[in-house]
Design a protein around this nucleic acid. Structure first.
Lengths: 348, 348
DNA sequence: CTGAAAGCGCTAACAC
DNA sequence: GTGTTAGCGCTTTCAG
């Protein structure tokens, strides 16, 4: 740094100011400094900066170690988060502390390595969030706790997403649409996605003048099969199904085939929050509301850094971003058959 | 730290030595120090340690930003790597520099933030590896370049994995087994997995006294369909198929259904390097050789840290770990039908 | 804007 | 083992 200063013909402290923008610097001087840095291939030493400034420019991403149930999903979030951090001049460390619990998180935080934390996969009641609050560590969430009023977060707009899915099906002419939600446990536990999607479904269906049909279903092929059978007993005139559960959909589609029906001719299927990769693993590929997971990761980091840099003094109001899923039409949806004929009769 | 020393009744430097194990310390003293640290809730400051010791205890994971083609896979590697790093007292930062290229990587490395790098998804010829070599940054690879002789790496044992798959099918009684490999381009480019799997297939099949049938196929349902049709023209008595390509398998299975055949009765299907999540997305779920991706990530970190800590002076010899996939039998494989009847005739 | 200087919290060398 | 001390490479304050 001394060398840079010398080469640019300025004081060492001026170089520092130019680097952090801590103090205004004339454009001419800044250019000279930047050139000097370039010529010498100078890169500020991250640790020294961190030690001196008490701002490490490192943030942590807390993610679930469990893995199952969120393969491609979580990766996209990580990718998006890493990209956003990088773009803002931050580094992203990953901490998968779910296994080791809150104590480990506490000790990690005490090391002073990170300026803030992005918490993935928050639960409605979340120890990690409580800890972050009491330790007064800046953080943002991807997802929401039960009471996120004063916190920066990024989440999927489940309500809006479900509405759009229903609207699309209604637009195709469907009048009898069922919603296969997550499991009963998660719904009754108040799990955000389940609850908000249910709300969106009901209001969208009602405003189309239809009757809401919701079914709770575990995420397994066998559960999906059974759900379809039961649904068709109660509503034999069903023409479309919206589902939150990818593995359940596999079962549903198989059950449909066994009846001699076809997707989408006899029943349209729509996957609700489904990553590209899984939507294309079925035959036909699934029309889906695809979540912008990378943007979600990006936004999670953005709101944290916003909090870090601009909300340092006086907290204006939390930044909360809701991202809707994007409709991707593939092969599993179509207008319903003529209402007069049942599928079996129609083909028979 | 001063406080810890005071409370334990020792010198500040002794606390430091106890912390890093830089110098032998009596058990009694160590216990007193540890207790004092515990009581005061002391945590060493990561950045200060890093600055003073020139060892940051942070390593970077370089991963492909591209995302597609490796959803759940890559996540498991990240998870495994993060866990291993954590267990060894390291932090893991993620750098997805593929987009920004080698220049960005260079500047990242110059910041002195990391002690070493784990490179994911290495290509046969890889700029990133070249850069790491010239900058003399310790690194390990997950996967292999063309000439990995002197480097620490962790990779899947494709050869062994393919052998085991073939052996399993031969054990079931199959005598006519085809191998659906990756695309022609990747095979001809010498892409490691394609080439090594092909080698394993050929040698396993030959040692069972059978004829190797390999087909190159893009990773898309349509390509899979076509491949199956073509294969069955040339080898109508095929009873089993081993495939590297998950999306191609989707097409294969669909083509089989359209012929009125069933999996596994008329044709056994085996997925070669298939994550759990995708293997369970089909009906029937796929018997697969499942890669231990989390262990791969873990091992990648382990061999890097080994290099960092023990190979500091005098490089004994590189640590190179090959992990075989694990056979998971699901519903897509079975003994072949009696060889005398073709499937169609058998059912007709 | 300059130049000098005091840390940031630790490591590691030194003399004892 | 102890106690002391000189940095690590930067930020930031201070007087000019």
């Amino acid at each position: 740094m001394q060398e840079v200063a010398k080469r640019a013909g300025v004081a060492l402290s001026t170089v520092s100011y130019a680097l952090n923008g801590t103090r205004p610097i004339s454009d001419d001087t800044r250019q000279r400094i930047l050139r000097a840095m370039d010529e010498l291939g100078y890169q500020p030493h991250a640790m020294a900066r961190g030690l001196a400034s008490k701002r490490t420019r490192i943030i942590a991403l807390l993610f679930p170690a469990s893995g199952r149930g969120l393969g491609a999903t979580a990766l996209e979030i990580v990718t998006g988060a890493a990209g956003a951090a990088r773009a803002m001049g931050y580094h992203l460390v990953v901490w998968s502390t779910e296994a080791h619990g809150v104590d480990e998180l506490r000790s990690l935080l005490s090391q002073g390595l990170v300026d803030g934390v992005v918490v993935m996969r928050v639960r409605l009641r979340d120890d990690r969030i409580d800890l972050l609050r009491t330790m007064d560590v800046p953080f943002s969430m991807i997802g929401r706790t039960a009471s996120p009023a004063d916190v920066n977060f990024a989440d999927i707009d489940y309500d809006q997403t479900t509405r759009e899915a229903v609207d699309y099906l209604v637009g195709l002419g469907h009048r009898k649409i069922a919603f296969l939600n997550h499991s009963r446990e998660s719904f009754e536990a108040g799990y955000g996605p389940s609850v908000r999607a249910a709300g969106g479904f009901e209001s969208a269906v009602r405003s189309a003048g239809l009757e809401p049909i919701m079914w709770l279903c575990d995420d397994a092929p066998q559960a999906g099969r059974q759900a379809l059978d039961e649904l068709l007993v109660l509503h034999p005139d069903l023409t479309a199904l919206v589902a939150m559960n990818e593995l359940a959909i596999v079962g549903v589609m198989h059950a449909i085939r066994e009846r001699g029906w076809r997707v989408p001719d006899d029943l349209s299927i729509m996957s609700l929050v489904s990553a590209v990769q899984t939507a294309e693993m079925t035959m036909p590929p699934l029309t889906a509301m695809t979540p912008p997971y990378d943007e979600l990761g990006r936004l999670g980091v953005d709101v944290l850094i916003e909090r870090l840099e601009r909300q340092a003094a006086g907290r204006p109001r939390p930044l909360q971003g809701l991202l809707p899923c994007r409709l991707v039409v593939r092969g599993s949806t179509a207008p319903p058959r003529a209402a007069t004929a049942t599928p079996a009769a129609a083909r028979g």
